[in-house]
Amino acid sequence: MNLYPFAAEMLQILIILAIAPAFVGWVRMLKCWLQGRTTAGLFQPYRDLMKLFAKDVILAENASWIFRFTPYIVFGTATLAGGIIPMLSVDLPLAASADAIVLVALFAIARFFTSLAGMDIGTAFGGMGSSREMTIASLAEPAMLMAIFTVSLAAGSTSLSQIVQVVFSGQSVLRPSLAFAFLAFVLVSLAETGRIPVDNPTTHLELTMIHEAMLLEYSGRHLALFEWAGMMKLTLFMALGAVLFFPWGIGTGSIIASGLAFVFLLLKLAAAGIVLVLIETGLAKMRLFRLTEFLGSAFLMATLGMLSFFILE
């Protein structure tokens, strides 16, 4: 039995766990530079996490088991998602256990439980966050799936490894369907990972926060798990975009290829961070009800991608 795929799988999960905070640190650093502030350094998120893990947990009196269980399940789904996306190698054992649709559903589980946790304490903020999160998600998810469907129609498969191989070895360079799907994916990623213009990850202003509102009551290791999972989610979405649309350099089996893939992954993530910061700096946060237009455009892009797959290709 060839043990190499399992080793690659473990390695990939560990790498994602390890570099996610650094990626967030990188994004924050870029943002500071663009706004003319001094940075806290690339490793500040690690320090934050360590501090939170060391702290005691403070729970509200009426918190139920859902509240305590949710951080673990959010972290668990993020870790599994990290094992599914073929970043270092295309033949990962876990990649076959879940395709692109399952991946979307995994993030949906995390969101489902986070929203429940937001309502568990019974404050107005938690409920508000949950309500808004589910609203945005129910508009973002069709667009996300449409983008994925476009890619999988073009590749003839919903399996991520297969998509990567087909897109990588594809003859055509300029595929309008993929370009549209990519645009849609960028818009949806902003919504799914709670970035500006959909949500502001740094705000704690009562009326503008969405994701943070649900986590308001968390502390200690629970909050650390949430933060870590959130960092992984951001990194994973960027990596997913890189893997689906720019699959250069993903290894096919050997250790050297995987090493090379790792270097490529870092470069792609660095570039993705720059794009993300440019978008975030250039835009302002939208009103909640303007988001229908934003997510509608994402859906439109994805649909145009699917149409141009049939019309133009």
Binding site: L80, Q162, L225
Partner: peptide, 21 residues
């Protein structure tokens, strides 16, 4: 190559990560 899903894997991996964490 078209699509695959493994319920047991998804279930047990999530469970394992939760337990380990």
């Amino acid at each position: 190559e078209r699509a695959s899903y493994s319920g047991p894997m998804v279930f047990f991996v999530i469970l394992a990560v939760i337990v380990i964490a």
